[in-house]
Design a protein around this nucleic acid. Structure first.
Length: 578
DNA sequence: GCCGTTTTCGGCCCGACTGTTTTCAGTCG
């Protein structure tokens, strides 16, 4: 069993324990155990199976959780969880995702109404029954209804990282199969969309059809939706991501890639162009007017070339002007991940990160970076033990010393992710911020302000001369929380004028700014940092998602300051006199 | 339930807001 499955079961149990009103500290231990296991590099299953090893050596795992893990490994669940699941319906876990309802409220609802589904909860709100319960009123009913609507609306989409992981897992499972030449990702995952509806895989090789059977037989497959000679569709895992796998002829591979990568809008435009030029374009190839002779099809490049176009990177295929640019040989030279020289947003155990400065530096060095910035939270985020002025100044001093010794083999910029307070004031006094190399200003609370208030708040933050960049500027959480509303144009214009950079936060839950915002901001002359907001060394790998987003936004290396050399980067920072 | 010790018990990050109340519990981050 995979670590994330152990983690999921523990976290889910913690949720149920909350509804059951159990001891908060015990619940925290379950959560803590879950998050440690999820981020643990070694397989918990292997440790459990090895009599020479003790799972209690894993921090946060004591005797109690060790027994629980052993039982999960044995039978996929454990007594306490089973007992809780008889008390509450499985939908109880969904209820926790509703904004405005917490464990206490949910317990109260279960106590008074025999409901088991979101639909029934929705009906209760419509019937204005919730207000019969203590401390619940009309506003809560409205809020719950809105939240349920949002939950339903987003259902069926998945985080980019989730789909990416499924794709990797499938590719690995097929890797050993004889007669398979290539397994390639197409669809919105290849285009790097921020959320994914379903996963498209193409398989080539003389034995490609055998891959379809192999996928259907994968133990993670929940349901086989269909199986024909060239295609199989399955629902993957309990999450139910639809995966379509197609066996494709060598001669059609490029055409299939083009066709199944999309987008729909891009493909429609491309097919119209083909018709105008006397061709017919489909998933099997680009054909001359007779419909028989193939003009192209083996490679994507061949198809675009035959249509008089430069090859268009998948990230740009949205029919937003890319075809015209390709015709004029004027496509942007999109940034590539190998051009990234440093990661500028990460946390350590000083606040809510899970690794030390040294461990983060080592992980970054292993990725080949020249520099990083450590940007722990500020004191407004008390729950993370955020830095106050004194600790900020100490930290800056420590970093200067570390850099002098050069022991870490990578340059560290001292930074902070400083909260932008309710009124736009920075959470850390300016003289302390001045000690640092880099200040990322982020909004973490009071996100429901009126748009005009939020706009003023961000403008005020930009006035702080020590602010280097705006972190996750819109505050959205994909599939979970909308971006907060503000006058984007006004804020970006001011940021550009003041030399404040904009973050593309690579965390797959954020991808903030979005590609659309990136495009708009670039048009105004903005500069960007693409950073991971890593709370664990493995999160540094999320850079790929930020880079995809940057590419979708049409960015070139020059637009992104953390592709610059260390010296160049240091000089470009706001407030540095040249 | 974990952890560390002052070593087998007591502490475990907490402040602010919201909508409900009529002084505050529940939710959120």
């Amino acid at each position: 069993m995979e670590n994330r499955e152990f983690a999921r079961i523990l976290a889910e149990t913690a949720d149920l324990m909350e509804i059951a009103g159990e001891d908060g500290f015990r619940i925290r231990s379950y959560r803590n155990g879950a998050s440690t296991i999820e981020g643990y590099t070694e397989s918990i299953g292997d440790i459990l199976a090895d009599p020479a090893r003790k799972v209690t050596d894993v921090p946060g795992i004591g005797k109690g959780l060790a027994a629980v893990l052993q039982e999960i490994a044995l039978r996929g669940s454990f007594d306490k969880r089973d007992e809780l699941l008889t008390k509450f319906p499985p939908a109880a876990l969904d209820f926790l995702k509703i904004q405005g309802l917490g464990p206490k409220g949910i317990a109260l609802i279960f106590e008074h109404f025999r409901i088991t589904t979101l639909d029934e909860l929705e009906q209760l709100c419509r019937d204005q029954k919730l207000r019969d319960l203590p401390r619940m009123g009309a506003k809560l009913e409205e809020k719950v209804l809105r939240s349920i609507a949002h939950l339903k609306e987003r259902s069926g989409r998945f985080l980019l990282s989730f789909a990416d992981n499924v794709a990797q897992e499938l590719k690995e499972s097929l890797a050993g199969l004889a007669g398979i030449e290539a397994i390639t990702v197409a669809g919105s995952l290849r285009r790097g969309r921020e959320t994914i509806g379903d996963l498209d895989l193409l398989v080539t090789g003389p034995n490609a059809e055998a891959a379809l059977d192999k996928v259907g037989a994968n133990p993670r497959v929940h349901e086989v939706l269909g199986r024909g000679p060239t295609k199989t569709s399955v629902k993957w895992g309990r999450e139910g991501l639809q995966v379509d796998v197609r066996a494709v002829d060598h001669a059609s591979f490029g055409a299939a890639m083009q066709y199944f990568t999309g987008s729909k809008e891009h493909n429609v435009a491309l097919r119209q162009r083909a018709i105008r030029m006397g061709f017919k374009l489909n998933e099997y190839g680009l054909f001359h007017g007779d419909g028989e002779t193939r003009a192209a099809g083996e490679t994507e490049e061949g198809i675009y070339q035959a249509l008089g176009l430069d090859w268009i990177p998948p990230e740009l295929r949205e029919n937003q002007g890319e075809i015209e640019l390709a015709e004029a040989h004027a496509l942007p030279k999109l940034v590539e991940q190998r051009q990234v020289r440093g990661d500028l947003h990460m946390h350590t155990t000083a606040t809510d990160g899970r690794a030390s400065l040294e461990e983060m530096a080592e992980a970054a060095r292993a990725l080949g970076y020249e520099y990083i910035a450590i940007t722990d939270h500020s004191k407004a985020l008390a729950m993370t033990f955020g830095l106050d002025e004194k600790r900020v100044v100490e930290f800056a001093r420590t970093v200067r010393k570390v850099n002098e010794t050069g022991d870490l083999g990578i340059h560290i910029f001292s930074g902070v992710e400083c909260d932008i307070l309710q009124d736009g004031e920075m959470d850390i006094a300016w003289d302390a911020l001045a000690e640092l190399d880099l200040v990322i200003g982020s909004v973490h609370g009071h996100m429901n302000q009126e748009p005009a208030v939020m706009t003023d708040r961000l403008l005020r933050a930009i006035e702080c001369p020590h602010l280097t960049a705006l972190g996750h500027p819109t505050g959205r959480l994909l599939l979970h929380r909308e971006a907060f509303a503000f006058d984007f144009d006004k804020v970006i214009t001011e940021a550009v004028a003041q030399g404040v950079w904009l973050e593309i936060n690579s965390s797959p839950e954020r991808l903030d700014l979005s590609a659309t915002h990136v495009r708009a901001a670039k048009a105004k002359g903005a500069k960007f940092i693409v950073s991971t907001d890593a709370h664990h060394p493995k999160h540094l790998l999320n850079m790929q998602y930020g880079i995809l987003t940057a590419r979708r936004g049409g960015l070139e290396a020059e637009d992104i300051v953390n592709t610059y050399t260390r010296e160049c980067f240091a000089q470009q920072r706001r407030g540095v006199k040249s």
